[in-house]
């Protein structure tokens, strides 16, 4: 496995912009500046979110259901666009990307969902390889990279199996393998443990931490309090559309959840 900061990114589309940090490797990988998102004109789902995520960081995004966690991630992978403010990924304002450039943004991101979003009638290999096939990578290299990714998620040698025959936890591992196989700069995990039992949830969290250990930045959205308690990572708490650094505020939120 490659060490921290030694990750190969074959399609480094994002170049340095006008940044305060002279050295691109020192600047935050993701910056949200006063981000607003409205789904209804009078109600802001996100209101003035400010956030900086450093390279190689692992951060939880948490908050009650409907707080805007998923919306925040959707803005980052440009499934939604910001209404006010800006989001800088590797120094580039992703709100200003043209629709033709969005695929290049997504090739630098890995996204994992609660419902896995894997294709049931494809094999494990096909589900993972698709992330490299879109890059027109040579087949031999695709095979090698997929094998490596499957090994990292604990599914070595199971590439030929149909994904429909896998358990929920294994299907999520396939989704994680697909997210990491192109070695993206940032992984966005949107409630990836939401459909899993507590033991499997912890396994998946550990998997993301192992990925983070190789230098990949991870944003892990969850409202599972036990996961937040189990680890000491940074916590960004979103409530009523506002983001706050919340490791110390976690207890208050937990009390509110219990009430």
């Amino acid at each position: 496995m490659s060490g921290k900061g030694n990750v190969v990114r074959p399609f480094a589309f994002f170049r340095a912009g006008n940044q305060a940090h002279a050295n691109p490797s020192q600047r935050p990988i993701l910056v949200l500046e006063d981000v607003y998102k409205y789904f209804r004109p009078d109600v802001a789902t996100l209101r003035g979110v400010n956030l900086e995520v450093e390279r190689g960081e692992f951060a939880f995004i948490t908050g009650p259901s409907g707080a805007g966690k998923s919306t925040l991630l959707q803005l980052i992978y440009r499934a939604q666009t910001v209404d006010e403010g800006r989001i800088l990924f590797c120094g580039r304002d992703i709100a200003r990307l043209t629709s033709r450039s969005i695929p290049y943004l997504r090739r630098n991101l890995g996204v994992v969902f609660q419902d896995f979003k894997i294709i049931g009638h494809w094999t494990v290999y096909e589900n993972v390889a698709v992330a490299l096939e879109i890059l027109s990578m040579p087949r031999r290299l695709v095979r090698a990279r997929v094998s490596e990714a499957l090994e990292r998620v604990g599914l070595a040698g199971r590439g030929g199996e149909p994904t429909s025959s896998l358990s929920g936890g294994e299907q999520q591992r396939v989704a994680v393998a697909r997210a990491i196989v192109s070695e993206p700069a940032l992984i966005l995990a949107d409630e990836p443990t939401g459909n899993l039992d507590p033991t499997l949830a912890l396994d998946i969290l550990t998997l993301f931490e192992e990925i983070n250990d190789t230098g990949t930045t991870v944003l892990f959205a969850t409202h599972d309090h036990s996961l937040l308690e189990a680890r000491s990572h940074r916590i960004v708490y979103i409530d009523e559309g506002r983001a706050v650094e919340a490791r110390k505020g976690l207890g208050a939120w937990a009390d509110r959840q219990t009430a």
Binding site: Y77, R100, P103, Y104, L105, R106, R107, N108, L109, V111, K117, I118, I119, V130, A131, I134, L135, R178, S182
Partner: peptide, 16 residues
């Protein structure tokens, strides 16, 4: 639909 969604999430171009 699912397949198309996955492709787009992985960064597939419209042409792909």
């Amino acid at each position: 639909r699912d397949e198309i969604e996955v492709l787009k999430l992985c960064g597939a171009s419209d042409g792909f």
